[in-house]
Amino acid sequence: MGKDTRIIHKVFTAWNYEKEEDYLFNQSVDGWELLRGGCFYSKYKRNNEKVFKYKVDFNPLGKDFNKKRLYVDIFEDQGWEYVNSTFNGWHYFKKEYNPQLPEEEYIVYTDRTSIIEMRNRWVTIARIIQLVMLLFSIYFLTITASGHNPGMLINALLYSLGSLILLFGIRKMRLEEEEWSQARKAINILSLISSIAVIVGCIFVNII
């Protein structure tokens, strides 16, 4: 024990999921096979015999067991081994790496439509959280400004920062060549302005 397993605390953001796959592959090349993947920490065991390629896929399947079974079965059909899932809908798969095989063996989204669908599954959820965070930050700023509770200032600040980070992530997660609709563009710009306005508001309230 001890030297045969290890835990690495490293934060992977959703929009960097491809970098996470490369990172996990490099860990495997170094002899560390993934036992459990996650957004904040991951667990590995020593394996100097086999090298694995990894796939990190976003698909919130809910509590439906049959759906999950079908999902895992279809991946296993093509030689992927299920590793684990996180609470928020990310799934980890591995496949033994064989340099003789074509690269396509290790691609799971093979057309544009399905990769956009996958990324948009995340974008839809992130968008809701981002807007809720923005509303919270405005709410906390107004109760601070009206003199009820100055301690709420830090909440306003944190929620507006959270909203900004998610806005950035949503931009990253959408494929570059994909067009933004007018409505989405408007939501982005309004969110950006409001988040910054809340931060400026926080500074302003703090000064007076």
Binding site: I74, D77, Q78, V108
Partner: peptide, 29 residues
């Protein structure tokens, strides 16, 4: 079955089109 479909598609399209697991799950479900 899933694997059979993937193989048949590969053969029909002369190795041009491969349907990966993520795409296959999305389409099938």
């Amino acid at each position: 079955h899933g694997y059979g479909i993937m193989q048949d598609v590969l053969q029909l399209s002369d190795n041009r089109l491969r349907i990966g697991s993520g795409t296959m799950y999305g389409a099938v479900s």
